[in-house]
Design a protein around this nucleic acid. Sequence first.
DNA 1: CCAGAAGGACGGATCCCTAGACCTTTTCCT
DNA 2: AGGAAAAGGTCTAGGGATCCGTCCTTCTGG
Lengths: 253, 253
Amino acid sequence: MAETAVQREMTGSLEAVFAPVHSQTAFEETVERLGTAIKLGLLTPGTRLPAERELCARLGIARSTLRQALVALGQSGHLHATRGRGGGTFVADPQPPAERPSAEVLAGWRDVCDSRMTVEVGIAVLAAERAQEPMVDVLEELVVAIDDTLDDFPAYRPIDVRFHVGLAELTGNPHLVKLMTETQGAMSNLIHHIAHPPEVLDNANYQHRRLLAAIRLHDEATAARVMTEHLRGTEYVLAGLLPEPKPSLPRGP
Amino acid sequence: MAETAVQREMTGSLEAVFAPVHSQTAFEETVERLGTAIKLGLLTPGTRLPAERELCARLGIARSTLRQALVALGQSGHLHATRGRGGGTFVADPQPPAERPSAEVLAGWRDVCDSRMTVEVGIAVLAAERAQEPMVDVLEELVVAIDDTLDDFPAYRPIDVRFHVGLAELTGNPHLVKLMTETQGAMSNLIHHIAHPPEVLDNANYQHRRLLAAIRLHDEATAARVMTEHLRGTEYVLAGLLPEPKPSLPRGP
DNA sequence: CCAGAAGGACGGATCCCTAGACCTTTTCCT
DNA sequence: AGGAAAAGGTCTAGGGATCCGTCCTTCTGG
C-alpha cells in the first residue's frame, strides 16, 4: 500500500536518469564561460584578457584549445586581438548586438524563469540570514549607480547583473556565485529583447532597495517576498510578449 | 565614484570566470548519473536496467562507452550482470556500504549545505506557489510510508529522497527536478555517515508534514521557514561531528 | 635598434568516443 | 529436443578533440 505510492512516485524522476548525456567539450565550455561573462558585462568592453599563455594555464586547458575559443569569440565580434608587444586580446568595444533568442530558448523560457526564481529566492534568503553590513553597503552603492541609468538599458543591465551576483557573494559561497552567474546568463538572451521603459527600471531598483533593507534586518521572509515580486515583474512582461509554450503541464494559480 | 563601486564589485566574481574548466567525459557523467540514482535509491536494489543496446541509444552514447560505465559500477558492487536471454544488468541487492566521504567532500561540506539550502528553499517556495492537490496527496503518502521506517535509516533515506525530489516535481519543472537530484546526491555521502536516532527522524518527518500543510495553503513564507528549519537540523548535526573547514571566510550570525 | 612580449600557426602523440561486426551464454517457444 | 531470440562480452578500425612543443610574425618599450 505504502509501497505503491513509493513505486508510483519513482517512475517520474527515472526518465531524467536515462536522459541523453551531452558531454561538453573544453572548447565549448570555454566559449560559453567567456561569452557569458562578456555578454553579462562582467568583462567590461575594452578590458584586456590575460595573455594566452597565462590564461590557458589558469583554465587548465591547452593553448590551442583556448585559441579555438578565442577565435570563435573573435569571429562573433565579442573579442578582438592585437599582435605585438603591448598587444593582447580585448573585449570588443562596442559589443555586437545581442543575438536573437533561438527557438529552443524561446520554447523553454518558462523553465528558465522558474530556475531563476528558485535560485534567486533561495540566495536572497541565505543572504538575508548571513549578510554583513560592509558588504551590503557595497551593493547599496550599486543601487545608487543604477539610478543614473534608468533610461539607458544597455548601461543599466550590467550593473543590475552585478547587483544580483553580488547578492550571491553575500552568502560567501563560490558555488552559489557560479550558479547565479549561470542563471543570469540563461536569462540574458530573453531580457535583452523585451522593452524596458524607465518606469519599470525605476520600480525594479526600488525593489532592490527594499531587498537590501530586508537583508540588513536579516528578515528572510520579506527578502523572499520582495525577490519574488521583483522577478515576477520580468515574467509578466515576458508572458505578454512571448507565446505560451507548454499548455500540457498543469500549473497552479 | 559610483564607477569605483562597480569596478570593485567586479573583481570578485571574475576569478570564477577564469577558474579551471573541468570537461566531464561521457564515461564520467554516465557513471555519476547512474551511480547517484542508485545510491539515492531512485533505482531500487533488484531493478533491471534497460538492455545495453537500448540504454546507450537513450543516453546518446556508444555502447562501448556505456559498458565502461557499467563495468565500473559493477566493480564497485553497485551493479551486477547476468548473461543470456532473460538476463540483464541489475541493481545489486544488497548494495555495497556507502563509501567514506573523501577529504575534499569533507572540506566543502558547508558549501554543499548552503547549496542545498538555496535549492530546497527556492523549490519549496515555488512548490507552495503552484502545487496542486492531487500531487500533494502523493507526497502525503510518502510521509505516511516514512513513519514506518523511523528506526531504520537505510529504509528511511530512499523515501526521504523521493519526498524531496517529489517536491521539485510539484513545480512541474524538469530542470529543477534534476537540480534537486544532484543536490541530494551531493549530500548523500555526508548524510550516510552521521547518526540518525529515531527521535530525529520522527521530528524530520513532522516537519515534512508541516511543509505539506503550508504548501497546500500556498503559504510560501511558512514553507520557506519550515524548510530552513528542516535542513538546519542536518547542518547542526554535521557541524558537531565535522571539523570547521573555512575559518577564513566571515559568516553572519 | 633590438630584445621581449604578445598573438598566430603547425605537427605529432594521445586519449576518448563512435560504429559496427561478431562471439558466448542462456532461455523461451515450437 | 532444437533452434531462434535476447541478452551480455569482445574486438577492431577510425575519427575527433586535446595536449605539447616548437617555431613564426608582429609590434613596442627601453
